[in-house]
Simulated assay, not measured.
Amino acid sequence: MLPVYRKITYSQLFSFSTVLESPPEFDTAWHHHPEYELILITGSIGTRFMGDSIQKFNETELVLVGPNLPHCWKEDLGNKNPQAKAYVIHFSADFLGKDFFNIPEGRHIKQLLEQSQLGIRFSPEIEQLAVWKISQIFETTDFDRILNLLGLLNLLAKSDKFEQISSPGFTSSFIENQSDRINKVFEYTLENFKKPVDLDTVAELAHMSKTAFCRFFRKSTGKTYFDFLKEIRLGHACKLLQESDLSVHQVGYHCGYESMSNFNKQFKEIFATTPLKYRQSLLHQGTEMYKLN
């Protein structure tokens, strides 16, 4: 199911967009746009679809969505809370100028924006701190509005209390690591995950023995290399299941799996469902979206 392109409209008076929505307005179709989206949802319960992730959300959540990452929120039909709200902020990468966040003081915000390529969900503690700042953005005008948005982005950028939503394989992108060795391994993996990957070759790229490389990779990323490879393959599999007419068997083959049983097993480990049922759930969701629109 291909995401639809959504054009974000701006007032001529402002450099970024703010919209306060209530159900069913934020119950939108599966879509994407080149702008960053910062959204605070309150008083609602439902399901969030983002990249290759399908997760429940409850009452309150604060999420930063990177450019062109497909996403939508679907409120549960049983939720009838009239107080449910979605505070939505859209801004382009260069809304303050092409190189604004390249200044030394902007490095943390720049890193936050890079991480948002996979979608970021912030912790309840950060949500509580952010609520007031978001309300100020919606209530102020002129330059105070920009200062409040920068203050909010600064708060979020300095926090380590968040989780990434989608996986690197879905967007074929990754978060830059300071280590050239890791970058080379990431690049090699993204270019070669569709075929058998040999650990000897990967370790040679890092100029290490296999044992040393495995320790180094786990220390640098918090996961084993083969767990990382699995995420890349399965993330790409989700993209193919969503956007192509390939059979499930063909999808597995195109993602580097020579064994369908292994493909099904690993897919279920990550997504708690089979590739076939994952595609069927998307088709059902697409039917429901068509009815709503």
Rank of each mutant, 00 (worst) to 15 (best):
P67R: 08
D180T: 07
G97V: 11
I232H: 02
V88E: 11
E114D: 12
F174L: 06
N177F: 01
S159K: 08
R233I: 04
I89S: 12
L150V: 08
Q12F: 00
K291C: 03
R48N: 06
F216E: 14
K210V: 10
S11K: 14
T224R: 03
S53C: 14
H207M: 09
H31T: 14
T140G: 01
Q280M: 11
L282M: 14
E125T: 12
E127L: 02
D94Y: 00
E114I: 10
K74A: 07
N79V: 15
Y5D: 11
M289C: 09
F95P: 03
K230R: 15
F216Y: 15
I39S: 13
R145F: 06
P124A: 04
V185P: 04
V202G: 05
K85F: 01
N58D: 14
V251I: 13
I39H: 04
L240E: 05
I175F: 07
K133H: 08
S172L: 11
E187L: 10
F122E: 10
F267I: 13
T224S: 15
F91W: 12
T287L: 13
F226C: 07
Y257D: 01
D198I: 12
F143V: 10
E61T: 15
D227C: 08
N58K: 12
K230V: 05
V197P: 02
P82I: 12
R233Y: 05
T211N: 06
F170T: 05
K265M: 12
M208S: 05
L77H: 12
I120K: 14
L129Q: 15
